[in-house]
């Protein structure tokens, strides 16, 4: 039970990170119907920017009060990573809008390769370990049984991750459902041509979608950095695919679906590692991706697609 509870907490934490990345996939897929293959790498760039910022703020500028540091890092990392998201869209996707669907998929893969290698060249191929910054936590359960001591802990880090995710999600849902930007976005999802005829600036709306996705990926990057304490240029690939799996599982195009899918993938991965084998945890994630796409292509919260004859 205690082990289960601990895994549950860990799974929710990991799932929150996946969920934040998955939102980027789901929004982009919803609006232009393509898999933004480079999104995982935007997340990786977000992690690297966060790392540089963190060191800059703590060791060079000398701030020590952690909440302030985190706030500064989050805001600036979101801004700078958004610039990357915007640039990727502008360079690789916008020129191909209205073109054949394979073309943007290829440029997306090309961008993904280019971004990974760019970071590898500029930041080096070795992993970057960051010592744990946020120590401590709440002990939920303590005691000893015949099997041994049991401790279930909810670290402050995990609390921060989960709370940040919930806050961002809430804010984001409001943004999509209440603001004119959200309305423009939903209009573009339904019918881009018609939206353009009605005066929606489609290019700008799509750009903003990428910017928002990148900003959330930056937050996910920072969380990943703080939680695991290790990043390298390759983290984007696996995290990206798992986040995409999350988006598909939840129903692509649906924001709550992305979050739900993220949590489920996080839980599955953690429980799989906890109860079966760590080596095959990625196989579990990939198998779920395949199974969901084959048997439930519209996901848990998505709208089913009917084949028209």
């Amino acid at each position: 039970m205690d082990y289960f509870l601990q895994q549950l907490i860990n799974g929710l934490t990991l799932g929150s990170i996946y969920g934040l990345i998955a939102i980027g996939y789901t929004m982009v897929y919803g609006i232009i119907g393509m898999i933004n293959f480079a999104h995982g790498d935007i997340f990786m760039i977000g992690a690297f920017i966060s790392l540089a910022l963190f060191l800059l703020v703590t060791s060079v500028l000398g701030f020590a009060f952690l909440p302030v540091v985190l706030l500064i890092v989050i805001v600036i990392a979101m801004l700078f990573t958004s610039a990357w998201g915007w640039t990727v869209e502008r360079l690789a996707y916008r020129p191909l809008r209205g073109s054949f669907r394979l073309a943007p998929l290829i440029t997306a893969i090309g961008m993904s390769i280019a971004l990974q290698n760019f970071v590898q060249i500029t930041q080096g191929a070795r992993v970057k370990p960051l010592p744990p910054q946020i120590q401590g936590g709440i002990t939920l359960m303590e005691g000893s049984t015949a099997a041994g001591d049991i401790v279930v802990r909810l670290s402050y880090m995990q609390i921060i991750i989960i709370v940040t995710t919930v806050v961002l999600m809430a804010g984001f849902s409001l943004l999509i459902s209440r603001t004119s930007l959200g309305r423009a976005q939903r209009a573009c999802e339904q019918d881009r041509k018609m939206a353009a005829l009605l005066g929606v600036n489609v290019d700008r709306t799509i750009s903003l979608t990428f910017v928002m996705g990148a900003a959330l990926a930056a937050v996910a990057g920072l969380m990943f950095l703080l939680f695991y304490g290790v990043i390298d240029f390759y983290i984007g690939f696996l995290a990206g695919i798992k986040a995409f799996t999350a988006a598909v599982l939840g129903g692509i195009g649906s924001l709550p679906g992305a979050m739900l899918g993220g949590l489920l993938i996080g839980l599955i991965e953690v429980f799989w590692s906890g109860y079966f084998t760590v080596e095959y945890k990625d196989v579990a994630a990939f198998s779920i991706l395949a199974i969901v796409l084959i048997f439930l292509p519209s996901g848990l919260l998505g709208k089913p697609e009917v084949e028209k004859v």
Binding site: L91, A92, P95, L96, S99, F100, A103, P104, I106, T107, I109, G110, M111, S112, I113, A114, L115, Q116, N117, F118, I121
Partner: peptide, 20 residues
């Protein structure tokens, strides 16, 4: 070192230039 960076960028630019 720049091999794959150039490879990735070449993929992007060739596609943008000739999508087919």
């Amino acid at each position: 070192q720049y091999r794959m960076l150039i490879f990735g960028l070449a993929m992007v630019f060739i596609m943008v230039w000739k999508p087919r």
